[in-house]
Design a protein around this nucleic acid. Sequence first.
DNA 1: CTGTTAGCGCATTCAT
DNA 2: ATGAATGCGCTAACAG
Lengths: 435, 435
Amino acid sequence: MATDYRRQHPVCLPLGCWPIELGSVSLRYAAYGADYARRALGRVKRYVDVILAARYSTWIKPVSRAKPPGNNRPTSSSDSVVLAHQTSADGPRAVRLKDIAVLAGVSPITVSRALSRPDIVAEATVARVRAVVERLGYVPNRHAGSLASNRSQLVAAVVPTIANAIFSDTLLAFTSALDARGYQVMFGLSGFDGDSEARLLENVLGRRPDGILLTGARHTARTRMRLAAAGIPIVETWDTSEEPLDMTVGFSHRDVGHALGQHLLDCGCRRPALILGDNDRAAARGRGFKEACAERGYTSVPEKVLASPTTTRQGREALRELLAESPDIDAVSCSSDLLALGAIIEAGQRGIDVPGDLSVAGFGDLDFASQLEPALTTVRIDGQGIGRLAALNLLERIEKHVASGNGAPKQVDVGFELVARASTRPRPHKPENRR
Amino acid sequence: MATDYRRQHPVCLPLGCWPIELGSVSLRYAAYGADYARRALGRVKRYVDVILAARYSTWIKPVSRAKPPGNNRPTSSSDSVVLAHQTSADGPRAVRLKDIAVLAGVSPITVSRALSRPDIVAEATVARVRAVVERLGYVPNRHAGSLASNRSQLVAAVVPTIANAIFSDTLLAFTSALDARGYQVMFGLSGFDGDSEARLLENVLGRRPDGILLTGARHTARTRMRLAAAGIPIVETWDTSEEPLDMTVGFSHRDVGHALGQHLLDCGCRRPALILGDNDRAAARGRGFKEACAERGYTSVPEKVLASPTTTRQGREALRELLAESPDIDAVSCSSDLLALGAIIEAGQRGIDVPGDLSVAGFGDLDFASQLEPALTTVRIDGQGIGRLAALNLLERIEKHVASGNGAPKQVDVGFELVARASTRPRPHKPENRR
DNA sequence: CTGTTAGCGCATTCAT
DNA sequence: ATGAATGCGCTAACAG
């Protein structure tokens, strides 16, 4: 039963603490000072709730130090429930490592080890510590841990947006892989402008991540310096780069565009056009596309560039405009599947047969691409693979960094897959499933 | 020009530091000890790079303390460049507040204030500090700050997934609003199972966020206790709840379903069906839908439940199965626009006219909904508004928390908007744009 | 296997 | 307007 203990009591319970059965309270208050004992007992009588070392640890310490000859460890799980509810005016206080130590009858460092490296601690000790942790709901303060160890177990992922469905696979895989190794991922949304990216980075670096994942291309000189100065492994994804900061896991957008251009021309198209989002990667694909066209003598490629993130509506409008300006186009390659969907819808509305009169290609192989009628030709990227590889490479560097210094720059090309479907069938074939 | 300084030097530069022009070096090495001076000067000659108090602050301190009668502050911006590149074996070290203080000729606390509350520090001092900070690229260590102040300036957002385009508006607005007030947002992906949510929460709470945003319904008793025990403001979004943890910003999914049911019946449908994702919110909408049907005497509603996150492919398949089992259905309400897209495509393939023979409704009003042919009837949620309101309410609590204790539970209902489009036109009208 | 000692880098409190 | 002293909660290094 989920009870909201917060409402039952006049003050919040300390971080990670909740009421438990009291059992036999062995409150040797004489050892703690009369004042404390009075307050503690008062609380106990009133709330019968968990008792917490909290602010009183200074009083407890001497007891633990005194080590009476007999046994100052809890004799049963119930009598270790010893202390007092927080009463100070400045709000509740969290359970600390030290509190666990006192209740488990060991030193703080042993608790630390029992939790982070149980293999080097005696089994019985670990069990005892775990029991107390569980009972008090202790959650270690990672700020303190990071500060002391100089390792944050935190990896930052700076992405332009999370709205892009195409990135989310990557981020999920990245997160999972790191999670499995005990790292947390902290997302930073840089938006599409480089200005806020600088501020974001400042914030992110303040949290001293052990590594950084970047998505989204061009960084200012200042940003690059800051990153280099941070001295932590960096992996850039979703692109190969001519001047990588550290590692990259991605593919050549130029090659994708080139392959799309060739494919459309192979399908018999003679007047291909482009609909592109206004980001670097889409532009690179556009460049590759035009190169492929130029190689076969088609030097003029009508083109529409739209504000990112691109939408289906933009796709419809762009095709409309393209047709108005260049009525003879017979193929259009879009920088996202959403744009392509818009183009297909617009074509349908105008009675333009796809692919009979107009071939349409997208990018991303989103869920719906294969389900459309006609099914959409697109480019599939192993977004999950990118995320996984980025995580693994980062981890390798992070762990190595502990021992040695830097590694050699590493570039991973995951390639891409052009998925030819009905929306760009070779011209000779007439589609069967026209409606 | 973006130079990768990391590769120019055998060791990484310290966090936030990069080479700068040296100017006139006033290295009074006599004060620092011969050994240090020898090394420092050796480095300076070899790299001509930035000079860093770093590990040597203990040596510097006495100088700063001595306060020679003249002026121990930098006389110009160039001669304050004083120290040595990091040479210790245990790797580079970050610039600290103390380093800035030494170079700016003030105490650490003054630097702290100059950066966080410049209004209470003399203008000239702030300027001097800022200059040094800028030059050394100092980035404050937030772990230390959080530990000392017991405020992390961090808000956690725990969501099932970021793939869902429908959440991303909320998250973006949430992030923006908090960013504007100096808070960082930390995302946690809970997935769709409650098991990993528990572990995630443990990790998240370890970072001591000042507040938490939750999306995605049912929490285990354990989770609820942990959250209550954390004693920080919590806002649950995208739903109203019967047993809220703290605050909620959302709407009634039951009411959405009810409105959809009424709408379809109003359109003249007499045999409505459901296609739902297998999450609580979709289920609640389904319940409302069936209630609306029951109110008018339609007690049997064919239904397909699919694994979340739902896809267009699932929508196609689900409609196929529904038609096989209940060939007489004349309306289908889907728990997402993607499912609805699939249903529309499948209907098109089978020659079933939408809305003539089958009305289709979705949920979310995704980008493409209005662009489809026929345009999709759906439900629009102000996702951005949810994010903004969640942030504002959280902020209010966070700031208030500093002064007083808890606030009263707060429930905000942002409502919803049923957007009736061509896919559910009233039966009498025959659609004009059939293909 | 466990304990002792000594900080990590910063902000709070109380001085001046 | 600025500074000194103190400690946040934890872990590293070294003892035993």
